[in-house]
Structure formats: C-alpha cells, structure tokens
C-alpha cells in the first residue's frame, strides 16, 4: 500500500500507526536503487514527497532550520560551505533534484556526504512521533552502528538545524570527476568561538566524527605543526575497511591528507 499524505501531521500519524510496517520514502534516490536491485520489496510505503512545506528553509538565531524534504539542489545554494559542497558532490542534477538531506540521514550510509557535513557542523536534528511531540538531538548522537540509528520505527526526521555562522569546508575523493560514491570524504567546521568539528565518510560503519582531533584543534591556536599533529591523530580515530572501492590503508592516509588540506587552505591564518 502506498500512502501519499499532503500534510506532515498525517504523515506522522501514519508512521506512528504503522511503525516498522511502513517505509518512509523521501527523494527515493536510495530506496529506488534498492528496489531496482531487488533488495527492497516494499509492503507499505509512506511517500513524503507530496508533503507541503517539505522544502521550507527558515533562518533564525544564526541557524538554518531545514524541513525534511529540502533537496540537495536546494542545499547547493545554502551559504553553509561544507553542506553546499557536499550537496553539489552528490550525483548529477537529476539526483540533486530528488535526494533530500533527511533521506541522507535516514539511509545512514557510511558514505553519506550530507551526514559528514552535518557532523562537522555540530548540527542538530528533530525526530517527531505523532502524539508525543518532537525530540531534538545532535546529529552526532544519531548514528549507532552500520545502518542503525536513533530513529525509532514510529518516528520521522522532521527537521535539521544547521549553524549559519560557522566557517566550514568539505572535500571528497572519488574515482572520477563527478557522480562519485566517496572513497573518503571529510568536512571541517569552526564556530565563531573557535570550536572545531571534524568528520569523515566511508571510513567506518557510519559517518564518523573525530573527537580527539577536535579536542586537539580546540586546545591551541592553529599552526602548521598543529595541523600535522591533527592529521596524524585523525588517522587513529577512523576505522576504515578494505573493499572493492579502496583499501583501508589508503582511506586512513587520506583522512590525514584531507584534514591537512582543509585546515591549511580554509582555516590557517584566518582564511575564509
């Protein structure tokens, strides 16, 4: 059965009533791949692509509040560099027009480009269950294990809240010029108060943060030496595997390389 609610309340009620028996479908850029590969045989589908106000972006208190249906295409125009660049690195225009940030979070792929940017930005998200209201949690608390998250079967991801005044940057290594699954991707962000966020994709069972590296960066002024130290530290914080996309050794080394490059090019000497 396919449900196509027009208002969020209705979607939440359906999700709360059907729980694990219904799959939420946002842009479809992940679920339909699974459908095509025969890995997903839907019983009940909750199509969120018709919900009005799903694309709303609000700015308040130096934060952007993004509704669940905000697409990658919308994000490419958001003045939050890491998130915009992450969005631009996803697929081609056809994918960016459909895929959503909330969907990226829900899929919880280790390579989730948008998730990595959100982690670095210390973003927050809102999970809502009909009748019980919303709970807000840091994106950092959302991922539990490989494709396992805090999202309960009765809940939907309703909003993502991103700081608007952080400096941030993003880099991804793929095997070609565009439409890449990350071999490794990295995001770095810094609050106006100087607090750092560092995150990596495709180097663990889910998108990872690097808290020790962040602590190192938070503790002292940024210098080339500190950057080297952070790059070395970051490599100890990730847990990549070898698969058909790349070796663990390469991925680990690239975490250091990307972090060094991002910090040097965008943060050292007060750049950006």
């Amino acid at each position: 059965m396919l449900y196509q609610p027009q208002i969020l309340e209705e979607a939440l009620t359906l999700k709360a009533d059907l729980g694990g028996d219904v799959d939420a479908l946002a842009g479809g850029t992940d679920l339909l791949v699974a459908l095509s590969r025969g890995q997903w045989r839907p019983k009940n589908v909750l199509d969120l692509s018709r919900v009005v106000e799903r694309s709303e972006i609000r700015k308040a208190d130096s934060r952007f509040s993004l509704a669940h249906g905000v697409t990658h295409a919308q994000l490419t125009r958001l003045p939050v560099r890491a998130l915009a660049e992450a969005a631009l690195s996803i697929g081609g225009p056809q994918i960016r027009n459909r895929g959503t940030l909330a969907g990226n979070l829900g899929t919880a792929s280790p390579a989730g480009d948008g998730c990595v940017a959100l982690l670095a930005l210390h973003a927050e998200m809102e999970l809502t269950r009909a009748g019980r209201g919303s709970r807000r949690l840091p994106v950092r608390d959302f991922f539990l294990d490989y494709r396992r998250t805090e999202l309960r079967p009765e809940e939907l991801i309703t909003r993502v809240v991103v700081p608007a005044d952080w400096t941030s940057a993003w880099h991804k290594i793929g095997k070609r010029g565009s439409v890449n699954i990350s071999v490794v991707c990295a995001a770095v962000a810094r609050s106006p108060q100087g607090r750092f966020g560092v995150a990596f994709g495709s180097v663990g069972p889910y998108p990872l943060t690097a808290p020790k590296t962040e602590a190192l960066l938070n503790a002292a002024a940024l210098t080339p030496e500190l950057i080297d130290e952070a790059a070395a530290m970051a490599q100890t914080e990730v847990s990549p595997i070898s698969d058909h996309r790349a070796s663990a050794a390469y991925r680990r080394a690239m975490c250091g390389t990307l972090l060094r490059r991002l910090l040097t090019e965008h943060f050292l000497n007060g750049r950006d």
Binding site: K175, R176, G177, S178, V179, H244, R245
Partner: peptide, 12 residues
Amino acid sequence: NFTDYILPTFRD
C-alpha cells in the same frame, strides 16, 4: 552496477 563500475563522465 554503474554505481561501482565507474565510467568516464563529462568531467573526465
């Protein structure tokens, strides 16, 4: 699949 069997794009 074409996600992991990588072909050159316009950018390549």
